[in-house]
């Protein structure tokens, strides 16, 4: 009869080298970051009065300001719709080109994916700052910003959808000699359409959120009024703008969530 033996732990396991190593690394990084950013916990609490003062002034919204901001709020939604549509339209060919089950040329696929990765690195406000410099202050800069921002996001979501489709119908069409375009139209499109629309709506939600701050840099919409109220220290107006934005975001989220549940 053999006696059961407990497996021996290696030296590294016994002294938790990995865990301790990660903890030490994290602590070092934390201390270094705190030094670099000049974090001073005491200062935050000693100046807490100013912060709460701000919150108190915000908690008393100027409701009569609501009528002023309805038009820019609608403009914000229009910017988001148009920007998302343009971005999604441009995303479709790029999504097809970067899907590994449709395009077998590794170089072409790698190149388009690298391009999409590069587009996705740029934050929305940074794009807005540059396009305001090009197109001038107004909603055009906002629409272009949102179009590029959603292009990067949608194309990635789209090609991931394309890569998960059932390859049976494609092979069937290929075996009877269909062209690439025919295959995409009759075998790929019916499989992905609902998910495309669902991701389109999801991107629209994100863009409505993003578009509310784009105006801060002059790219149209409600953000222009946000900046004005903050610069004039009219925090009760800022509160109205934030609350109105919240309502719009919740309504758009609700509609889009409902539609997506119906679609999928």
């Amino acid at each position: 009869m053999s006696t059961p033996t407990i497996p021996r732990r290696s030296w590294a396991q016994r002294y938790h080298v990995k865990g301790i190593g990660w903890t030490v690394l994290m602590l070092v990084l934390l201390v270094a970051s705190a030094q670099m950013t000049g974090v001073n916990v005491g200062m935050f609490f000693s100046n807490l009065g100013q912060f709460t003062n701000l919150l108190v002034r915000m908690s008393n919204p100027a409701w009569d300001y609501t009528t002023v901001i309805i038009q820019p709020l609608l403009e914000t939604i229009q910017m988001a719709i148009l920007g998302t549509t343009i971005g999604a339209a441009f995303a479709i060919p790029f999504a097809v080109l970067s899907a590994s089950n449709l395009i077998h040329n590794r170089w072409l696929r790698g190149l388009t994916r690298l391009f999409l990765d590069l587009v996705r690195t740029l934050p929305d406000l940074l794009l807005a700052a540059i396009f305001v410099a090009i197109f001038g202050i107004g909603s055009t800069a906002g629409v272009v910003t949102l179009a590029i921002f959603s292009f990067g996001m949608v194309s990635k979501l789209f090609y991931e959808v394309i890569e998960t489709i059932d390859m049976g119908p494609l092979e069937a069409l290929e075996s009877v000699g269909a062209t690439k375009i025919t295959i995409i139209w009759y075998a790929v499109l019916p499989q992905i359409l609902n998910q495309f629309i669902s991701y389109f709506l999801y991107t629209l939600e994100i863009n409505v959120r993003a578009s509310t701050v784009l105006g801060y840099l002059g790219a149209g919409g409600i953000g222009v009024f946000l900046q004005r109220s903050l610069n004039e220290f009219n925090y009760n107006q800022t509160a109205v703008i934030i609350l109105a934005t919240l309502v719009v975001v919740l309504v758009i989220d609700g509609v889009s969530n409902h539609l997506r549940r119906v679609l999928l």
Partner: peptide, 20 residues
């Protein structure tokens, strides 16, 4: 939904401009 930029501006009022 509270915009990050507005938060940043509020905290700048509290602790002054800078990375903190």
């Amino acid at each position: 939904t509270f915009p990050e930029i507005v938060l940043a501006i509020m905290f700048i009022k509290a602790v002054g401009p800078g990375s903190y």
